[in-house]
Structures are given as structure tokens and as C-alpha cells.
């Protein structure tokens, strides 16, 4: 009986335990099923693909950039320090924002037809070079008369003046390694497109051309990155001729010295003429005598050619009537 009571007493507890066990198992199973079901729904709701779409878009955009850059032909090197004109003591670690010239720009600029130059002659939009009255010709180390150009790549007036200077000097020799650059985007006449002398060489049997690009168009602090430093001789020339009475603003650039006999301070025409124009758009107008851009640039080139001829006796390879051009100075 006791056993029976015991048995009887035990049976309900076992029954309760079994019931609880089944209930727990059922709840766990239900919970597991619910969790799996929820996770499945969650994964369906937030598929991994959706997470990767933004990343894929970013990759596509970046790859597109690279492809566009790779096909526009301007992804090659900027001029390197090794190309700096011999004798320069500039900060060769500093780098310009120069890029290779687009196709056709160099040939359009260095081969303006003598007929166009003659037709344009002296224009009202170009300025004359100033005679220094000095008799002694500035001679470079290679015993040739020296044309010295001191400018900076950020400077829009320098950007404007390089165009006629390249045209003029191309009448006496040839350039190698000219590149494309532009004036500062933060200055007046922002982003004026131009050619860069930095890293180029000039060959002529009659002239020595030396250019000093003082600074790049790359902002550094409150100024621009130093590119080249004038020699003491060049500083002396600047002190003497980039001053009164040749200019009311001593030390201004661009400064062009033709063998110490003629100087030009500032641009010969307003950079406004070049605003919004690409290198190709500027270069392609240079042979059009009816173009205002050509009138200004070619007219200034004629004046420079005339000054070179008058100062050095060098004759243009073909074309311009130097004496006629100089009469405006």
C-alpha cells in the first residue's frame, strides 16, 4: 500500500514532468521554427545583393572615371625635374599642374603663317615693348643674345603673354617639351589656358631663351608652390628693369627682357580675351586674321619679333616685317 501510495504518489509527478517536458520541447521547437522562419524572412527582406549595390555603383563610377581619363590622352606625366632647363636652381621637388598639349595646339601656335602675321601687323589691342636705352646687349653663357622671361604659372597675365612669346620665338628657333597649363582658378581671369615653358627647351642659332617660372598654379598656404628661383644675375635684371621708369609697379610679372634693350612688363593684351577658351580653341584661331584672339596675340607676337630683331639683329626665319612692327613701340 505504501508502495502503492508511493506509486500512486509518484505517478502524477511523472505525468506532470512529462507534460512539462513535452511542452518545453514544443516551445523550443516552435521558437526554433519561428526564429528560422523570421531569419528566412529577414534575409529575403534584406538580401545581400542590396548591400552590395552601393559598392558596385561606387566601383562603376570610379572605373568610369579611369576609362574617361585613359581615353582623353591627358593622363601622362607632368614635366619632371630632369627636364628643367639647364642652369635653373628652382625647387625641383615642386611640381606644376602642367599636362601634355592636346594634339594640334603646338603646331597651330608655332606655325602661324607669315601672311596672317603680316595681315594683322600691329593691333590696337597689343602693347608695345619699352626701349631701355641700353646699348650693351645681354649675352647668355652660350654667347647668344638672351631673351629672359620671368613669370609664374598661377598668373593670368603671364598666361596671356606666353602665347605671343611662343609665336614670336618660333620665328627664330624651335621649342621642345612645351606643355599645357592654366592660371590660378582663384585669381582674376581664372583658369586662363596657356602653354608652360617649365620643362621645355628652346633651340635657336641666333637667340638664347631663358624662362623662369617662379611659382606653380598650385596653392600652398597663402601663396603658390615655388617652382624656379631666379639666379642672382636675373634678380639684378629684375631689380633694374622691372622698376621705374619702366613700370609703375616694380616687381610685376610677367617680365620680358629682350637682351636688356627692350622690356615688357605685364601682358600685351587683356587675358579677358581668352576667358572660357580651351587651348584648342585659342590655338585654332591664331591663323585667322579676323579673329579678335588672333589680332591680340599675333599683334603682340609681331611686336616681340620686332623687338628681338631690333635688339639682336636676328632675322625671323620667315615672314614678319620687323621694322614695321617695331614702329609701334
Amino acid at each position: 500500500m505504501a508502495a502503492s501510495r508511493s506509486h500512486l504518489a509518484k505517478t502524477p509527478r511523472q505525468t506532470t514532468k512529462n507534460t512539462k517536458s513535452r511542452s518545453t520541447k514544443n516551445r523550443k521547437a516552435t521558437s526554433r521554427s519561428s526564429r528560422i522562419s523570421y531569419q528566412a524572412r529577414y534575409r529575403r527582406k534584406r538580401p545581400m545583393l542590396r548591400a552590395l549595390v552601393p559598392i558596385a555603383l561606387i566601383v562603376v563610377v570610379l572605373v568610369t572615371f579611369v576609362i574617361i581619363k585613359g581615353t582623353d590622352g591627358s593622363s601622362t606625366a607632368t614635366p619632371t625635374a630632369s627636364k628643367v632647363v639647364a642652369g635653373r636652381t628652382g625647387s625641383i621637388a615642386s611640381i606644376t599642374g602642367a599636362t601634355p598639349l592636346p594634339a594640334g595646339v603646338l603646331s597651330d601656335t608655332t606655325s602661324v603663317s607669315p601672311a596672317t602675321l603680316a595681315a594683322i601687323g600691329l593691333s590696337n589691342t597689343s602693347a608695345a615693348l619699352t626701349s631701355t636705352g641700353i646699348k650693351k646687349t645681354l649675352i647668355a653663357s652660350d654667347d647668344k643674345p638672351e631673351v629672359l622671361f620671368i613669370s609664374a604659372e598661377y598668373c593670368p597675365f603671364c598666361a596671356a603673354q606666353r602665347w605671343p612669346l611662343v609665336i614670336a620665338l618660333s620665328r627664330f628657333g624651335s621649342f621642345n617639351g612645351l606643355s599645357a597649363t592654366h592660371s590660378s582658378t582663384n585669381d582674376v581671369y581664372p583658369d586662363t589656358k596657356t602653354l608652360s615653358f617649365y620643362g621645355s627647351t628652346y633651340t635657336s642659332s641666333d637667340l638664347n631663351f631663358t624662362s623662369v617660372e617662379l611659382q606653380t598654379n598650385q596653392v600652398s598656404g597663402n601663396s603658390y608652390t615655388t617652382l624656379q628661383t631666379p639666379t642672382s644675375a636675373e634678380k639684378a635684371i629684375l631689380s633694374k628693369y622691372d622698376a621705374a621708369p619702366f613700370t609703375s609697379q616694380p616687381g610685376s610679372i610677367p617680365f620680358l627682357d629682350v637682351a636688356n634693350k627692350y622690356v615688357s612688363i605685364g601682358s600685351g593684351y587683356t587675358p579677358q580675351l581668352l576667358q572660357g577658351l580651351s587651348l584648342k580653341q585659342i590655338a585654332s584661331q591664331l591663323n585667322n586674321k579676323d579673329s579678335p584672339v588672333a589680332t591680340a596675340i599675333d599683334g603682340e607676337a609681331n611686336r616681340i619679333v620686332a623687338a628681338i630683331t631690333a635688339a639682336t639683329g636676328a632675322k625671323p626665319l620667315a615672314g614678319t616685317d620687323a621694322s614695321a612692327s617695331l614702329s609701334g613701340s
Binding site: S75, T76, A77, T78, T80, A81, A93, S94, I95, T96, G97, S184, T185, N186, T216, N217, Q218, V219, S220, T225
Partner: peptide, 14 residues
């Protein structure tokens, strides 16, 4: 500073 690789040009640009 080889070709298009040029850190200084980037970090000193405007």
C-alpha cells in the same frame, strides 16, 4: 613622381 603618380601635385593643389 612617375607619370600620373604625383602626391605633391595633389596635396598642394588648390
Amino acid at each position: 613622381n612617375t607619370g600620373i603618380i604625383n602626391c605633391t601635385a595633389v596635396t598642394t593643389s588648390s
